[in-house]
Nucleic acid binder design. Structure first.
Lengths: 136, 136
DNA sequence: GATAGAACCTGTAGCGGCTACAGGATCAAG
DNA sequence: CTTGATCCTGTAGCCGCTACAGGTTCTATC
C-alpha cells in the first residue's frame, strides 16, 4: 500500500515546507531526513510524509530547538514509541534554556539602556558609554 | 616617554583581562588588538593598555556586541575622536537587536510553555507536543 | 650551567546551522 | 530538439571562538 501520488522535487518540497532547498540537502546529510528515492537521472523524489517531517523540523527550529534536540524528538516519532514523558523532558529542558537566554538578554538590555541614557548623543568627545566600558 | 613597567606574557594578560589566551591571538588576527612587541625568542609582550583594551572588548562582548561593532567602537577610541553621537548610534542599534531577540525568545517561551502544559508527561504514546508540531 | 616542564609559537581544523558557489547533469516546456 | 530552469556533488564561507599538532622558548630548580 505505497502512496505514490506525484513525487515532489527538492525545490517543490522546499516551497511546500518553507525550508530552503539547500537546507533540505543539509538536513539529509545530518540524518534528519531519510534518503529519498531518486529519479532515473538521480534527482531526489519526495512525498507528502517528507513535507510533514520538514514542517515539523521547521517549527521546532522556530522554537529554538537545536538539530540535536530535533534529532531526539524525531527518533521518538520514528520509533513509534512517542512517550509524553521523554518529549516533555526535552521540551522542558529547552524551555529552561530559553528562559536563561531571556534573562541574559534582559541584563544586557538593562545595562545598555542605562549607559545609553547617560549619553548625550551629541557631537562631543567625551562619551560616558566608552568611559564606563573602559573603567572597572 | 615609553612606559615599560613589566611586560605581560599572553597567559598573564589572559588572567588579568579575563579573556582566554587563545582568544587573544584570535583578536589580534581580527585586528582588534595591535601587534604587540616580542621578546628575543618571539613571545608576545603586553602592557597595561592591552589589559584595558581587552577588558573593554570583554565587556562589550558581555553586552552582546559583535566583533564588528566592537571594531567600530575601538576605531572611534583609537582615532581620539570619540563622538558621543556615533557611539550612541552603535549602542542604540544594538539595543534594538537585543530587544528583538528578547521578543523572539518570549514568543518561543510562550508557545513552548503552552505546549508543555498540555502534555501530561506520563509514559503514554500520544503526545500533544508532537501532535501539535506535526499538524498545521 | 644543565635540565625539566610549563608556557609559548605557528597554522589549521572543528563546532552549529546553514548558505553559496563551481562545474556539470538532468529535467520540463515549447 | 533546444533552451533554460532546476537539479546534482563537493566544498568553502560565515561568526566567535576553541583545540590540536609539532615545534620553540622561557623559567624555576638543582
Amino acid at each position: 500500500m505505497q502512496s505514490t501520488p506525484k513525487p515532489l522535487s527538492r525545490g517543490a518540497l522546499a516551497k511546500r515546507s518553507g525550508v530552503n532547498a539547500e537546507t533540505i540537502r543539509y538536513y539529509e546529510n545530518m540524518s534528519l531526513l531519510p534518503e529519498p528515492d531518486r529519479s532515473a537521472g538521480g534527482h531526489r523524489l519526495y512525498g507528502e510524509d517528507d513535507v510533514q517531517r520538514l514542517c515539523f523540523i521547521r517549527r521546532c527550529r522556530e522554537m529554538g530547538f537545536s538539530l540535536e534536540e530535533i534529532h531526539g524528538l524525531l527518533s521518538l516519532v520514528d520509533s513509534q514509541r512517542v512517550s509524553c514523558e521523554r518529549v516533555k523532558k526535552i521540551a522542558d529542558e529547552h524551555l529552561l534554556d530559553i528562559r536563561t537566554k531571556i534573562a541574559d538578554l534582559k541584563m544586557m538590555e538593562k545595562t545598555l539602556r542605562t549607559l545609553s541614557a547617560d549619553c548625550s548623543g551629541k557631537d562631543v568627545p567625551e562619551c560616558p558609554i566608552i568611559e564606563s566600558l573602559q573603567t572597572g
